[in-house]
Nucleic acid binder design. Structure first.
Length: 713
DNA sequence: CGTGACTGCCC
DNA sequence: ATTCTGC
DNA sequence: GCAGAATGGGCAGTCACG
């Protein structure tokens, strides 16, 4: 594809006033210039360059119209030292601001830009590491916001703080900020595939407005203000806050402001690399603190420790503060699993057959459990009786499930004073004693639900216990955890039922169990070891999952026609990113939209398909294309080819038109998790899967006709 | 007060 | 969620 | 095999606007 291009707006002069808005109290606990026995190499006195942010002592800001643009050149030259191997890097070599002064946002933006250009994760991690060390050295109080911005968040997920700024809002703001129409901005966006690049190319702040240089804390605090804004006129206010940032930004700052707002950093650097860099930065910064004896490679070890700490306590406020006060080597002690704070859930890896499970977990005692189709939940019950429920991504869901709160409180056994339960919450019809589809669960109200007003009942299916009566069980084997699990709760039909499980290493028996799970409206099975390697490993993909649609020969497959496409974003800029697909209704001779798809393509496939279909453009949808007005693709195609798509489910859709009237009077059918399997050059569009067949497939889904799913042996 | 666009979060 | 890709 | 970044349907909640 293409190399990265930069597109930098001309520099503007920035004046130097540090509007210091202190973030929050957490900084108080930060250790000051970390234990640096080595006197800093005279950080500022020697700085040979007059830099934009360095008004030195004179608070009487002179309208220094002097060489501000050359200054940025100098800054960039200097900052390229970040590329040095950490062992050769001098933590005071790149900062152009004084010790104790707020870290300029430009520093982070330029670092992002450098990271983006690197290829290897090691090289990227090194830059990150050097950035963190620089901040630790000059302004440790800024480390927390720097880490948050690096990780593309503004708060731990369970705090529910969201900016509520999306593409549409950014488009609107950009249009206003540079006096263009929204339509204009949208076009530009479609071309570049990245609103950050649009912002950067827009030469914002045309007027030579005297504005203060952005600092990390300014940006971070403004993000928080944006997040907290709500109610009438809140959109306008958010809009203005964003504009104020954009107008104060220079160089590549607009690019990263926008990307941060949209949570799309796109520099190939995310959580795991950051954690690794954090660990390494700590090792270099804590120069006097020797690693514990017996450690061969402190850097790797520190990385492990930080990742481990984060996986059981995913909260940077706590991790950073613990790291700065007690050092990285104590992190395993200072950042423990904490009841009330969610742990990252253990995950599973996809497999495609029972035999694959038996192979991978050879020589270990196996347990299979039904894979229920609901929401993952981690339920924390504390000594004082308070309960919190967290989602798979650590969002606090307690307010959505007051009935679950009641159920676990009621069904825990007497000897249980506190626990953390890992489970699946599933929509459930108690009268018919039947699991209901995910789509039913998703209609449940989410905020401040009252037990008396619940529309969708749920049943909890526990499968693991991470904590019991003040004791962490993470390090115990599954066998032990299960023993505790079963000993700690009573079952109550329709409220709490242990996940259906089978302990077996017998392929035939397991195959039967798999079929049974599907009959019971489940998605398939999860495989785990009971003894060997069976501790609970947060965020690790050490379980296996087998779903019917993963299996090569089984699962629903459809032959569909691409009739439109959407421009790609990010690394897909310049090609289509996804395609609008249709089935064929033989009776009406219509192509009816059924879903989009944008995954399953090799890069090459995507380029070729894009090139091929671009020759087939039509200005308007044909009369025989049945689609909703709502989501029109960027371009329409003549129906010309057939693609095979695999799905996990068919669903009734509010928008898509496939088989409309056949299973629902005015709604069509769509696809859950559609992905391209292969092209079908052997088929003509009219040979695509028919609406009739799609209705059949929908009706064949077990949970749509549960009465017919008689037990079979 | 109803509707539709937008956003975040489930999968 | 699924899938692909570079390291 | 890891980590990151592309991409899917669809729901409730929020806000702007008529």
């Amino acid at each position: 594809m293409s190399g990265a291009k930069k597109n930098q707006p001309p520099l503007k002069k920035t004046k130097t006033h540090h509007l210091q808005s202190t973030p929050s109290k957490s900084i108080r606990t930060f250790f000051q210039p970390l234990n640096s026995p080595i006197p800093p190499k005279n950080p500022d006195t020697e700085s040979p360059i007059k830099l934009p942010h360095q008004t030195s002592t004179s608070s009487t800001s002179s309208p220094s119209s002097s060489s501000s643009s050359t200054n940025v050149v100098e800054v960039k030259k200097r900052i390229s030292l970040l590329k040095k191997t950490p062992s050769e890097f001098d933590h005071s070599s790149v900062a152009w601001w004084k010790k104790g002064e707020p870290v300029p946002f430009l520093f982070l933006s330029l670092a992002f830009d450098m990271i983006k250009e690197e290829k290897g994760r090691n090289a990227m991690s090194d830059i990150g590491c050097n950035v963190l060390r620089t901040v630790m050295h000059t302004t440790p109080g800024d480390l927390l916001p720097v880490v948050y911005l690096f990780s593309n968040r503004i708060a731990p997920p369970y705090q529910g703080l969201e900016m509520g700024v999306g593409k549409a809002a950014v488009i609107k703001t950009l249009a206003e900020a540079c006096g263009r129409t929204e339509k204009d901005v949208k076009e530009h966006y479609k071309k570049l595939g990245d609103l950050g690049l649009v912002a950067q190319a827009s030469h914002l702040s045309q007027t030579l407005q005297k504005s203060d240089a952005l600092t990390i804390t300014k940006v971070f605090n403004t993000f928080h203000l944006i997040a907290k804004e709500s109610g009438k006129d809140s959109q306008k206010k958010k809009n203005n806050l964003i504009k104020s940032l954009l107008h104060a930004s220079t160089d590549c700052e607009p690019l990263y402001l926008v990307r941060l707002l949209l949570k799309e950093l796109r520099i190939g650097y995310a959580e795991q690399t950051l954690l690794s860099a954090l660990g390494q930065a700590a090792v270099y910064t804590e120069e006097h603190s020797k690693p514990p004896p017996g450690i061969q490679s402190p850097l790797e070890e520190a990385t492990k420790i930080v990742k481990q700490a984060y996986s059981v306590l995913p909260d940077y406020d706590k991790i950073i503060s613990a790291m700065l006060t007690d050092g990285v080597w104590l992190l395993a002690k200072t950042c423990n699993f904490t009841p009330g704070i969610p742990v990252e859930p253990m995950l599973s890896e996809k497999i495609t057959s029972v035999s694959e499970a038996l192979n991978k977990l050879r020589n270990a005692e196996l347990i299979c459990e039904y894979k229920y189709d609901g929401e993952r939940a981690q339920i924390h019950y504390k000594e004082n009786g308070s309960v919190e429920i967290y989602s798979r991504s650590s969002e606090r869901n307690t307010g959505k499930f007051p009935d679950v709160v009641a159920a676990v409180s009621r069904l825990k056994k007497k000897n249980v004073s506190s626990f953390v339960l890992d489970c699946e919450i599933v929509a459930y019809d108690r009268k018919k004693q039947r699991i209901l589809p995910m789509q039913v669960l998703s209609t449940r109200a989410r905020k401040d639900v009252a037990v008396s007003n619940i529309k969708v009942d749920v049943c909890v299916f526990p499968f693991d216990l991470l904590h019991l009566n003040g004791q962490a069980l993470l390090e115990e084997n599954l066998k032990i955890r299960r023993k505790h699990l079963y000993a700690s709760f009573e079952e109550e039909s329709g409220f709490l039922q242990f996940s259906m499980s089978l302990i077996s290493n017998d392929a035939k028996e397991i195959q039967k169990f798999l079929d049974k799970s599907v009959d019971a409206s489940c998605e398939g099975l999860i495989f785990k070891t009971l003894d060997k390697d069976s501790t609970y490993q947060p965020s690790e993909r050490n379980w296996l999952k087998l779903k019917k649609d993963y299996m090569k020969t089984i699962g629903d497959t459809l032959d569909l026609v691409p009739i439109g496409a959407f421009h790609g974003q990010g690394k897909r800029a310049g090609v289509y990113g996804s395609f609008l697909l249709a089935c064929y209704d033989v009776d009406t001779q219509e192509f009816q939209t059924i879903s989009k798809t944008g995954t399953g393509f090799k890069d090459e496939d995507l380029e070729e398909s894009s090139a091929r279909l671009r020759t087939n453009l039509i200005p308007k949808p044909k009369a025989c294309y049945k689609h909703a007005e709502k989501d029109k693709p960027d371009v329409w195609f003549e129906a010309s080819e057939v693609w095979e798509v695999k799905v996990s489910d068919l669903t009734i859709s509010p928008d898509y038109q496939a088989a409309v009237g056949k299973v629902h009077s005015n709604k069509g059918i769509s696809l859950r998790m559609p992905r391209l399997v292969r092209f079908r050059p052997d088929k003509a569009p009219e040979q695509a899967t028919s609406s009739e067949r799609i209705a059949e497939m929908y009706n064949a889904q077990k949970h749509n006709h549960p009465d017919k799913s008689k037990k079979k042996n």
